[in-house]
Structure formats: structure tokens, C-alpha cells
Design a protein around this nucleic acid. Structure first.
Lengths: 408, 408
DNA sequence: CTGAAAGCGCTTACAG
DNA sequence: CTGAAAGCGCTTACAG
């Protein structure tokens, strides 16, 4: 069939610009196109929540382009801070964007550009202070970088874990994922993420994974430092309450404890090692055990603050003065650690910084240096500095004269 | 200018289907189009995170339509569970979707359909167990409903709060927002949300807002019940430790306490009322005050668990038996409440259910009944049932004979 | 330094 | 019950 057309069909862009202009043309009000009403509410939308239908529609890139007298491509360049835009042009566009209160729509950017501006955070135990700290750091860094954080709570042992992960990444196509323990060590989760080609960063994984970058702190070293502190205060009988058996952090903190003792020539006494599981009651229980020994410890290093709090409560109940009769050190620097009496000596995990670093790795901020730093086939492993927080729950041993007030 | 074309231009759809088919045509391998390589990595993307470039692209609605021998519109109907698709057609499409592992892309659905499938959660204090509980319930309900939860941490007193809110909603266009205290009572936040026409649900607001639906529990009644419990155990000198002055929950819990006393003809003794601020140390401090009175209370109702824990520690330190010498009741049912010894009698806030109800309100699940239920100009206010958790920190008063074991 | 065109993958609004 | 076309609001790939 032969068709004859009288003119080159106008581009869609031009049509739309014209159409929009008509609304503000000189037509008498009665002839102006009626404001678009909302489509009939679908059955699945609650009518009560539908809002004022004649609110002006948000400005689009086309509106900005028209007002600024440039092409939409140029507006796009300004929005994305691409180099190579005349300074005057840029300023003009920025002025119009501000005036129209223009905000690029993420779904359009995502569809066209392949970036979703979404970062996913996968976690297991929502009540863990650790997850909360990571989430906090991640949201703030995301905001700075123009991204948003989508959270997903998963059971580490759910049978359909891979499917849950797949559903999330397939629908949202996040630009990256942040995994916290124990999910960051779950092979099924990692495989699902690889299948979907989603970049991810592991936070405090059990072991460095060559396939994925990770961010963590040095638990061994921190535990060693805190034990050194106790030793430097003159303590010789230093007990440790170990954390949950299935968590790597437990093992690492114990390692640091043992290393410090060894370095100072203090024999590791089995009676000074009690198993806990990171909960308050096991701290209490362990303390009762330890404090009833013929040779009582003069200091206790609990593998986390919650257990340290248990030790504190048990000691006070037994009529012991802290730190007069017993020094107590924890790990984590939870909010409660600073609030109890006496406030706890502990280690602050840099959860916030770990999360920020993870986001940086994913969105590529200072990705250049970061990526070069460590090398490794697709994996770089950052170790962030922790902080020893010395408060009043630790003091010089009653057995020996004080040697120093603080250590490393 | 006059153009002559030899055929009606093919629709974009048909072109694309043909183009895709060509890839699997009988052409010798050498002539087949090369697999698309990733575009050169932009400066802002970390090279280390780019993945295998020749992974097959995910199936689109067009692939499914072609394989199933239907139009994309029909696939769309199946995906959205619209009525009016022949059963056989539906099953055929579903089979193909499963085989191709098809997942609709949310950015495309969002751009075309105006729904983002995103729900926003705005919170202030990330360490609050309350927020954690709400988030947990919200993520789970979102997953069930095919939505995702985007979290945003905001300072309630940030000068640019409205802008921060606006940036989020303008970029993401979430289908709804969930606000927790104190943000749900912040006029600036609410105004910004109204400006953007984003539906929102308030969780536990200070007062019912006629403009927005809300979900909460009945703090007054819960406090009354717990006080009744203590009264029924024979206690007459029941102290209360009030919560932070600026939180409505504090006031409501005190109201319930006072109401219960009045109903039982017990005079409100000013010496039995101490101000706290919801933190552990104020619980300890208040307990010392109360327990040093000439007329010591036999029971203490702390306005939250954290303060109740403080009372517990203080009591034990003073050599008092709990609950033998002193009954203690808290509020919140935090994880610690069940773990301390003795475990705390308290009230469980239905945070999970509140969050789920909020999501339902926003996505319109059972919106029909929900919306009709309460009426109100655009606002419906749901009050969910709390739960009185009676544990071992409360027992019969030593002063009076036991009257009952439980109340209401 | 700037722009015109095509396309991302869906849904809406119609038409039959 | 099913489908063809247009369009959502951007970015990419080119071209100049």
C-alpha cells in the first residue's frame, strides 16, 4: 500500500510542548481544556485516601526545557551534573528548575537509564542494635548520594529465601544491596544475588568473600585492646564471657582476649572462661558462676554489652562494688551502656561508618580510590576503626597496685 | 514536503518482537548480532562492581506475549489479576511467565501506571524499639501485598524537614507514607505530605487528625488495666513513674493509672508519683526516691520497661525481693522484659499489627470495609487491642491478703 | 557545548 | 474476552 503524507509527523516532544502551552494560552476560561480528573478509582485503591484531583501536575523535564529555552537533553545534563554545559545555560536551567520546583521522577530515570537509585538492606534480626545502627548510617548516606534505602527482613532459614530475594531484586532492580550477618554469609542469598547480577556489599561477614566487597571492624584487635586495658589496670584474674557459639564475632573476641593474656604472660585459666550467648540472662548466670569461684576474677570482659549489664546486675546483687571489687568491660557501646551506673567501658563498633562505606562502594562515590585500594577480583575488603570507650566500670585491681590508667 | 512511504510503518511493538526473534533465527553464528556489551562504565560507577556483561537480559512483557501467543495487554491483565481473562489463556500466560522467570519491572509499571509499589516509613529515633517493631510489621505486610518499604530517618527539628520530605516523595512518588511519633504530629511534615498529595497513615499520633487515618492502641485503658491488676493483688500503695513530659503516651498512661485508683476508691498520693523520662537511669533514680519514703510503695508501675528495669536493679541493690517485697510492672514488652529475672509484667503494644493495618490502609487491601468502618472526612482511626502480659515481677501485696491473681 | 530521535517496559484509554 | 496504539518522563546513542 502506498501512503502519502503531507508533512513529516511532528515529534512527540513538540506535540506535547504545544499541548501544554495551550493550557496557558489566551483562550477564554470557558474554552480552556478542563482540568484532568483522576481516573475512576480502581477497586484496589481506598477511596478515602484519594486526594484533591485538581492539584497541578508536577513539572516534568519538558516543562523545564520549554521555560529555559533549551532541549530536554540539556536539562538532563544539568540534573545529572554532567560536565560540558555552559555555565550560563546551567544557571538558567537551575533557576527554572527551582522556580517550577522540578524533581526528576525516579521511575522514569530508572526505566530509561537502568539505574534505580535504590539500595536494598537485607537483615535478619530487626531488634539487633547492630542492624539499627547500620540502617541509620545507610539511610543518611543514601540521602546524601540521592539514593533511597529499601529494607527487607528475611528469615535466615526460610525455605523460600532465594525466591524472596529474587522477587525483590527482579521487581526493584536496586543498584546495590547491603547484607548484614548472618545473611551476608548465607550461600543461598549470595547466589540469588549473583544470579540477578546485583552488586552487593557484605557487612561484617564471617570470612572475606572473594566475590563481594565487604566492610567490617577488627574484632580480634578490639578484644585484645580491651583486655590489655584491664591488664594495664593491674588485673591478673580476668574472666571472659563468650558470645553465641554460632557467631564469628564470639570466636574473634575470644581470640583477642587470649592473645592479650598470652602477650603478657598470663596463663589462660579455664575457670575464667564461661560460655554465654549474648543475652542478658546468660550474663547474669555467667557472673554468678564466676563470682562463686574460690579464686574470683577481679575483672570480667563480657563479649557484648547486654551480657556485661547482666554481670553488673549480678555483681551488685551479690554486694560487690563496681568497679571497686570488680571491673566490667563490654562490647558494642549500646545506648544502655552509657546510661547504667557505673557506665560501662566498652568498644564502639563503627556501624554507622560501615554502612556509609558500604553505600559508597555501591553508588561509586570515591569509588576510584576505593576500588583501587585493595584490588582483588571484584572484591575489596575494608576494615574500619573501632573505638575503645573507657568509662567507670573499670578501675585498678584491688589485688595489685595500679600500673596505668589507660591502655592503647 | 511530500513524502512517499511504501508501507505502513510497523508498530514499535512488532518491530521489537521481530528484532528479538532474529537473535534466535537460523543465521550462522558469525552473522548473529553480537551480544550487547555494557555501555562504558560511567565515572560514577565503581568498575569493581560491574558484573558479567553477557548474562541474558531478563524477560519482558513482550517476550511473554510472544511465547504465549497473546498481546502484551493480556499478559498485563494476568499480572495484575484483572478479571475477564479466559481461564485457559490465563493459565497459558502463567506457564510462560514461570518458564521465562518473568518479573514485571516496577519502574515501568510505575511510570506507566502511576503507582510506585513503594511505601515510605518516616521515623525519628531509630534506636526506639517501637520503630523497629513497626518497621518489621510493615516490611512483612508490604511483601505480602507486593509492595516495598523505603525508610527515611528524619530529625524532628531539622530546619529543612519539609524539603527533605518533599525530596523523598517527589523522587519516589511512594503510594503511601507511614509516620511514627513524633513525626506524625509534626505540622511541617504533614503539610509537606499534603502538598505532594501523598496518602499517609499516622501511627499513634498525639491526637486524631481529621485529615489522615491513624492507627494506635489505647494507652489509657492499658495503664488502667495494669493498675487494676496491682490493685487486685492487694496493693494499696502503688507508685507510678511517669514518662517523658513531651510525649502524649506519658500523659495517657498516667491518666489510666489515676482512673484505676479512683475507681477503686484509692486516694492519689502525690508521694507515689515521680517524674521520669523513659530512660533506665531515671527509673533507677525514681526507685531510690520512692523506696526511701517513710511509707514505701508495695508496687511500682513504670511507664515503660526501660524504667521498670531501672526499678528492678535499684530494688535488688537495696536488698528488696521482687516481687516478694515489691511488685514491678512496665509497659512495652521489650525483649529485655522477658529476659530479666524476675521477668516483667508489662503491656505488649501491638506494633506489628499497627504497622500492618497502616499498610493495609495505604494499599487498599480490604479497603472497602476499612474505609466504610469509621467514616470521617478522609480519616479513619483504628484502635488496636493491646495485651496484658502477666509475668513474675508482680505478686500479692505483703500488706494485705491476696484477692485475686489476675484482673480484667 | 547542544539537540533530535529512539527507546526503556509497562499501563491506560479505546475499540471491537 | 482480547488487542493496537499512545504515552508515562526520563536517558542513551548519535550527530553536529
Amino acid at each position: 500500500m502506498v501512503w502519502t503524507v503531507r508533512s513529516k509527523p511532528g515529534s512527540r516532544l513538540r506535540d506535547r510542548v504545544l499541548q501544554r502551552s495551550a493550557r496557558t494560552s489566551g483562550l477564554p476560561p470557558a474554552l480552556q481544556p478542563a482540568p484532568r480528573t483522576e481516573p475512576p478509582t480502581p477497586a484496589h485503591e481506598p477511596p478515602a485516601l484519594r486526594q484533591n484531583p485538581r492539584m497541578p501536575k508536577p513539572a516534568t523535564i519538558i516543562d523545564v526545557a520549554r521555560e529555559a529555552g533549551v532541549s530536554i537533553k540539556t536539562v538532563s545534563r544539568v540534573v545529572n551534573r554532567e560536565a560540558g554545559v555552559h555555565a550560563e545555560t546551567r544557571e538558567q536551567v537551575e533557576r527554572v528548575m527551582a522556580r517550577l520546583n522540578y524533581r526528576p521522577k525516579q521511575s522514569a530515570r530508572s526505566l530509561a537509564g537502568g539505574r534505580s537509585f535504590l539500595i536494598g538492606l537485607l537483615y535478619y534480626d530487626p531488634s539487633a542494635a547492630f542492624v539499627g545502627g547500620v540502617q541509620q548510617g545507610a539511610t543518611l548516606r543514601c540521602r546524601e548520594a540521592g539514593y533511597h534505602l529499601v529494607v527487607e527482613s528475611l528469615h535466615n532459614d526460610a525455605p523460600d529465601l532465594p525466591m524472596q530475594v529474587d522477587r525483590m531484586v527482579s521487581a526493584l532492580r536496586p543498584d546495590g544491596m547491603i547484607l548484614t550477618p548472618p545473611l551476608c554469609d548465607n550461600p543461598q542469598v549470595l547466589q540469588a544475588l549473583r544470579d540477578s547480577q546485583t552488586p552487593c556489599v557484605l557487612i561484617s561477614p564471617a570470612a572475606d568473600n572473594p566475590e563481594h566487597p565487604s566492610v567490617r571492624m577488627d574484632d580480634v584487635h578490639a578484644a585484645e585492646e580491651i583486655t590489655n586495658l584491664l591488664i594495664s589496670l593491674g588485673h591478673q584474674r580476668i574472666a571472659i564471657i563468650k558470645g553465641a557459639r554460632d557467631q564469628v564475632a564470639s570466636k574473634r573476641r575470644y581470640q583477642g582476649y587470649a592473645a592479650a593474656l598470652k602477650a603478657h604472660g598470663i596463663a589462660l585459666d579455664k575457670d575464667m572462661v564461661v560460655q554465654g550467648d549474648f543475652t542478658f540472662p546468660t550474663g547474669v548466670e555467667a557472673a554468678y558462676q564466676l563470682l562463686s569461684r574460690r579464686q574470683r576474677p577481679t575483672a570480667v570482659f563480657a563479649s557484648n554489652d547486654e551480657m556485661a549489664l547482666g554481670v553488673l546486675v549480678a555483681a551488685q546483687r551479690l554486694g560487690l562494688e563496681v568497679p571497686g571489687d570488680l571491673s566490667i568491660a563490654g562490647f558494642d557501646d549500646t545506648p544502655a551502656a552509657a546510661r547504667v551506673w557505673p557506665p560501662l567501658t566498652t568498644v564502639r563498633q563503627p556501624m554507622d561508618e560501615m554502612a556509609r562505606a558500604a553505600v559508597d562502594l555501591l553508588v561509586g562515590t570515591r569509588g576510584g580510590e576505593g576500588a583501587a585500594q585493595e584490588g582483588g577480583a571484584g572484591g575489596q575488603h575494608r576494615v574500619l576503626k573501632h573505638e575503645l570507650i573507657v568509662r567507670d566500670s573499670t578501675a585498678a585491681s584491688v589485688d595489685k597496685p595500679t600500673r596505668a590508667r589507660k591502655a592503647s
